[in-house]
Amino acid sequence: MARRRLDLTFPPRQATKPITYHLVKDFDLTPNILRAQIQPGQEGRMLVEVVGPREAIDAGVAFLEKEGVDVHPAASDICLDEDECVTCGLCTAVCKPGALTLDSESKALVFDKDKCVYCEACVVACPRRAITLTF
């Protein structure tokens, strides 16, 4: 089983189509929607994690692209600028999945991207605007 995070951009005309339904029914994938901004008639964005056999994920991605959905890998979407970070630690106070933590001894900021659900709480909290999410 493979796991892949996808950043989907829907053109306005597609935004109402139930693509997650098709991912489940037609490709036997398990989609987990981490973040979505979809409104009728407007460009939509969805961050989704899909779990399934590698070939099924590839086929699912091909289906999405054929449907006019712009598919990008999502892993590079969040960025911590270490030059701007002052290690205050405020981001750790709002990070529910525990992706941002402080080392128990040095209190340096540790960012475990695998745990990030792209909720943007840290982006909003960071007083240095050092964390950016590029959707």
Partner: peptide, 23 residues
């Protein structure tokens, strides 16, 4: 506070600093 959580009214509450200890 530095351990990462405190007890408030019987509830475990996660903590985070705003002042940088490394600096």
């Amino acid at each position: 506070l530095r351990s990462g959580s405190i007890e408030i009214e019987g509830k475990t509450v996660p903590t985070g600093p705003i002042s940088s200890l490394p600096t």
